[in-house]
Design a protein around this nucleic acid. Structure first.
Lengths: 332, 332
DNA sequence: CTGTTAGCGCGTTCAA
DNA sequence: TTGAACGCGCTAACAG
């Protein structure tokens, strides 16, 4: 049971000083004579002393831990985001508690993060209901949304301008002559779909005088299989192109088409928006909006460190630049 | 700064009992009269009391937290593993601290997990050097290897029988008439490659009297790009088939071939071993060893819970059953 | 069945 | 520049 072999007291005794002094050198307090500091450090080394982060957290009321809420680690978009987060967290010496929320039990997950006394929360995911919002609010810990939006946005966030991004790629398809462009969405209870990506799609239509057609909207899960299954409906809808909100779904749509003899991009065009490395795997390769996914994660974590440090944020809602890369699934 | 709004004392006072009693109901101790229990519970509800896990951890010397060491969340193999781990961890009410090791700074990462007083460690990754082994050993916290091997294996682990699995698929290629079969490996300083997968490959050759040819062994990183780059060398080696140890690499090899006019499986066959959903994305789809990835994660976490509970393990080294699925990248 | 009392390991005043 | 003493919020004997 004696996990904690050596404590701060052991070091103090061995070094012939008080624990307060040991605490000072461990925490880089300058008010220590360099001789005693060296002495203490050598004892620390020799005893292989490792400060107990739990005790430290209790005493200092800071856990140097942040909670990451992620809908699904298995989805490349989120896992790449988390890489950016992780790297910056490490840089600032924060530990990470990662919790899969599956968009459902987010509240429960956040609850347990809070009980762990996390110093901040990085939230990915697009379903933020009132209960969750309330919970976050009264928790008093800073929250940053990473690659995720909330219409009622009280919280700082880092994203790209989804509306413009989707609008631009839809435009390209329109310019290529398409009249019936399907929009392949994730769950329609997520505002990132309804209020942002779909809106971009609608904007493009409106600007070019194409009438919005509800029957060209398809909703599924952010998974390959889901896109593949939707493929048949999409084809039967008479659409000649698809704007897809997730790379894995897009791969599904694309593969369904080619598997069924529909030539891409000659007979059907597909664009996606995440530009994860999935886009390179398919044949033909997927044209995509370019998102700085890693950076979104990194920047959001950096914001969180500032918040946890009680620094002011110049801009609470950051939109990073996006782009477009034409590959083989579109003509332009 | 007053993160912790309400403490166990507040509840005790409000409910007119001692904090010990509150502690009992919170921890499900049965020795509490049901009336007082209800009273306490209602106060807890009313005050929105949430136990401080840090304080609890300090007092009980159990953090109900496990550390997960993962080489790269971005790799589907590992992220699917972590799903299995996560689900079981949640089932047993353990929190998870996830740390990207990148196979390099594993020791450093483990160090910080230990300082967080994790109750156990689930280790993924295949480079375990002496320092790390030493560190784990003297830490006294239970460790389970998940989808990872260690030749000097002191630690419990959950895997499939990589030797047999690779041997079997290599056999299939040999039966199909191939004489020059390339082996596309991850880093050769990882024993999972040298001592297991490569060994399976060699076994198959030996059993059928084919001479081992060093020039047919290719090593890269577990990434799509790496496989794609290796593609050219593989083609020039005169090999007519590839056994690849990672799905993303396999996708790279396959795409390189088709991109360069090599017909698969007619002119070249490719088999991979992880059967992640990547295998479905490529065209042709990848034949693969079937690994119960999710289960490997789940079972290893289950083992860890037993260990943390001081239960005995019947079998410290579990090998889950594997299989094979023929898709389109092979003839058999 | 319930309350009292020690700590858990460390940060942090406040004196010296 | 250092040390003594208190407390962070909770668990765990030990009494009663």
């Amino acid at each position: 049971m004696e996990k904690q072999a050596v404590t701060i007291y052991d070091v103090a005794r061995e070094a012939g000083v008080s624990m307060a002094t040991v605490s000072r050198v461990v925490n880089g307090n300058t008010n220590v004579r360099s001789e005693t500091k060296e002495k203490v450090e050598s004892v620390i080394e020799q005893l292989n002393y490792r400060p107990n982060a739990v005790a430290r957290g209790l005493a200092s009321r800071r856990s140097t831990t942040v909670g990451i809420v992620i809908p699904d680690v298995t989805n490349v978009y989120f896992s790449e985001l988390s890489r950016g987060i992780d790297d910056v967290a490490r840089m600032y010496n924060y530990q990470i508690i990662l919790a899969n929320s599956e968009e459902k039990n987010a509240a429960e997950v956040v609850e347990s993060l809070l009980s762990k006394q996390v110093d901040g929360i990085l939230y990915m995911g697009n379903i933020i209901d009132d209960r969750l919002r309330d919970q976050l609010e009264k928790s008093n810990v800073p929250v940053v949304l990473s690659g995720s939006v909330d219409v009622e946005n009280q919280n700082p966030s880092v994203n790209i301008d989804y509306i413009s991004a989707v609008q631009e790629i839809t435009d390209k398809l329109i310019v290529s002559g398409h009249k019936k462009i399907s929009f392949v969405s994730g769950p329609l209870d997520q505002t990132i779909n309804t209020e942002f990506k779909l809106k971009g799609y609608k904007n493009a239509l409106k600007n070019t005088g194409i009438k919005f057609d509800e029957s060209l909207i398809f909703a599924g899960e952010y998974e390959y299989q889901s896109g593949y299954q939707l493929g048949d409906e999409i084809r039967q809808s008479g659409a000649t192109a698809s704007v897809v909100v997730d790379d894995e779904m897009a791969a599904g749509v694309l593969n369904f088409m080619t598997d069924n003899g529909v030539k891409i991009p000659e007979d059907f065009e597909v664009v996606t928006v995440n530009n994860s490395h999935i886009t390179l795997l398919t044949r033909p390769q997927l044209s995509s909006v370019i998102q700085p996914i890693y950076d979104i994660g990194a920047v959001s974590m950096r914001m969180l460190t500032k918040l946890m440090n009680n620094e002011e944020l110049e801009t609470p809602e950051i939109l990073l630049a996006h782009g477009y890369v034409k590959r083989e699934s579109t003509k332009n």
